[in-house]
């Protein structure tokens, strides 16, 4: 189990505003700025960030990745992980309270504060993934790779890795230790949680063609930027 300081997770105001659709270069209204201030207070008070991370061999992960046999016929990760230097199973949660608080705000028709808190929590979970990537990248670079090393988190439910892949990932990593459970549809509870495999190795292994069938409909192709080395 890994504790993560809340201060490292808290997103920058500009990132929250952008996530909520504020046009670049525009300033939020005073009321919106006040909402963010309140949302950050709630985030700090209600977050209980915990992570779990364990190394896994290529052979083990190959079995985990096969899941229930529902992955897309061809996926980027299938070509990436066998070339990795290191693989780590990873899960992270902001805890139950923050997700409950968001639900409470919406139930009380405080939609604006609820949506701002939701954006803060989602970005914080993303930040946790990036912190984990940097950690895995540092380990790879410190041991046998050069500055060209890159670690990226890949998650079930994206890029052809079927969501049912969570089943074997959870059986091996046991994230219930940090309070994350799967429902019958393999979705995580608490909602503000992330899981997947950290793939560390030369940056080049993460680059792939976006010609997969599921790429055609994807409107958030961050894979391109993700595949670039941080130092680039």
């Amino acid at each position: 189990m890994i504790g993560v300081p809340i201060a490292r997770l808290q997103p920058q105001p500009a990132a929250v505003y952008a996530a909520l659709g504020l046009k670049s270069g525009s300033l939020p209204s005073a009321r919106a700025a006040a909402l963010l201030e309140r949302a950050l207070e709630l985030f700090q008070a209600g977050s209980e960030p915990l992570g779990a991370c364990e190394p896994v061999s290529t052979e083990e992960f190959s079995e985990i990745y096969s899941g229930r046999g529902l992955n897309a016929a061809a996926t980027p990760l299938a070509g990436i992980f066998p070339r990795a230097d290191r693989l780590y199973l990873f899960a992270f949660t902001l805890g139950k309270e923050i997700s409950e608080e968001i639900k409470r705000l919406f139930a009380a028709e405080d939609f604006a504060l609820g949506s701002v808190l939701d954006a803060v929590a989602s970005l914080a979970a993303d930040n946790a993934g990036r912190i984990a990537e940097e950690w895995a990248e540092g380990r790879a670079a410190g041991q046998e790779n050069d500055a060209g090393s890159r670690a990226l988190l890949y998650s079930p439910g994206y890029c052809g890795w079927h969501i049912s892949g969570q089943e074997k990932l959870f059986a091996r990593l046991r994230p219930h230790r940090i309070g994350i459970r799967l429902n019958a549809s393999y979705l995580m509870n608490p909602l503000k949680s992330i899981s997947g495999v950290l793939v560390a190795g030369p940056a080049a292994i993460h680059r792939f063609s976006d010609s997969y069938p599921f790429c055609i409909h994807c409107k958030s192709p961050t894979c391109r930027e993700r595949g670039m080395a941080r130092s680039a």
Binding site: G21, K23, P28, R31, G114, S115
Partner: peptide, 17 residues
């Protein structure tokens, strides 16, 4: 037209409710 953003819309929605 991006003159306002989501929190402003939701504050208005609460007023609507």
């Amino acid at each position: 037209v991006h003159e306002i953003f989501l929190p402003d819309v939701l504050l208005a929605a609460k007023a609507m409710y």
